[in-house]
């Protein structure tokens, strides 16, 4: 997965969001060791301090834990990951619904549209 950074928001927020996505999508499975800050920073082409801040946010969210000897790992608590994943899914759904409502679609139209997409797509 490539890092995508836009111009108008703090970089650390975008990094932590994308790391979160990687974790909930299973790219970094529960209990797995996360790459070192420097490595991640070099990969994303960002400042290590910024990456550090993004990772600290992951720890705040309970998605990552710091281990003095082993470094930083993804949490083994699947429930936490699932909750974050769920929340992300709801957020995406909400955004979708709000965008589609702007086009004048009702809930019924949307359901029909989804069905149609599933059959043809």
């Amino acid at each position: 997965m490539e890092w995508k950074l836009t111009d108008n928001r703090p970089i650390w927020m975008q990094l932590s969001e994308q790391l979160t996505r990687r974790i909930v999508a299973g790219q970094y499975p529960p209990g797995a060791k996360l790459p070192a800050v420097r490595e991640l920073a070099a990969d994303a082409g960002v400042n290590p301090n910024t990456m550090q801040r993004a990772l600290a946010q992951l720890e705040n969210d309970g998605l990552a834990v710091s281990n003095r000897t082993a470094g930083r790992m993804v949490t083994e608590d699947a429930a936490v990951i699932e909750a974050v994943r769920r929340e992300l899914a709801r957020k995406i759904t909400k955004e979708f619904l709000s965008a589609i409502a702007d086009l004048g679609y009702t809930r019924e139209d949307v359901l029909a549209l989804l069905k149609e997409e599933e059959e043809h797509g």
């Binding site: 111009d7 108008n8 928001r9 970089i11 910024t50």
Partner: peptide
């Protein structure tokens, strides 16, 4: 800081 600027100004 770069992130403060982005946060406060909403732009790069």
């Amino acid at each position: 800081s770069v992130d403060n600027i982005r946060e406060q100004e909403g732009k790069s």
